[in-house]
């Protein structure tokens, strides 16, 4: 018993390296959900119905949108709608590069993919912060 105890005590403490995957996978899942439910109607409105005049452009006028975007509730909604799908799509693009057999610089591919989503998120966040009026 005693001998066993000493051997276990002598074992070096095992170091666990935590994966960062859950964070990116969580953003991927949330972005995928948002893309599945909201992207079709968003594309329909901003890309087709308003440009084709099927919905009056009044409904997406500068004044109306600016007022919404500069409110405390509008700013986070716009940030999520614009930036969250990118965390989904760039995750998929990163993994598709592997599927296409592009092996070189895997870690840099990851930095560029998630870095791109991060950069655009910061870009939109900064603009929204600038427009915010409380």
């Amino acid at each position: 018993m005693n001998a066993q105890q000493t051997t276990t005590n002598q074992l070096p403490e095992k170091k666990y390296i935590r994966s960062h995957e859950p964070i990116f996978w969580g953003l991927f899942g949330a972005g995928g959900m948002l893309t599945a439910f909201l992207t079709p109607v968003m594309v329909l409105v901003t890309g087709l119905l308003i440009p084709l005049g099927l919905i009056d452009a009044e409904h997406l006028s500068y004044e109306k949108l600016h007022q919404f975007v500069s409110s405390w509730y509008g700013a986070p909604i716009v940030l999520v709608l614009v930036a969250l799908p990118l965390w989904h799509t760039l995750h998929r693009i990163f993994h598709s590069l592997h599927d296409l057999g592009i092996k070189r610089g895997r870690d840099w591919q990851q930095v560029i993919c998630y870095g791109f989503a991060f950069a655009v998120s910061v870009f939109v966040f900064t603009l929204l912060l600038q427009m915010l009026s409380l």
């Binding site: 992207t39 901003t46 890309g47 614009v82 990118l86 655009v120 870009f123 939109v124």
Partner: peptide, 10 residues
């Protein structure tokens, strides 16, 4: 394509 759409919105 969805990435490009998000960039248009941004």
């Amino acid at each position: 394509l969805i990435t490009v759409y998000s960039l248009i919105l941004a």
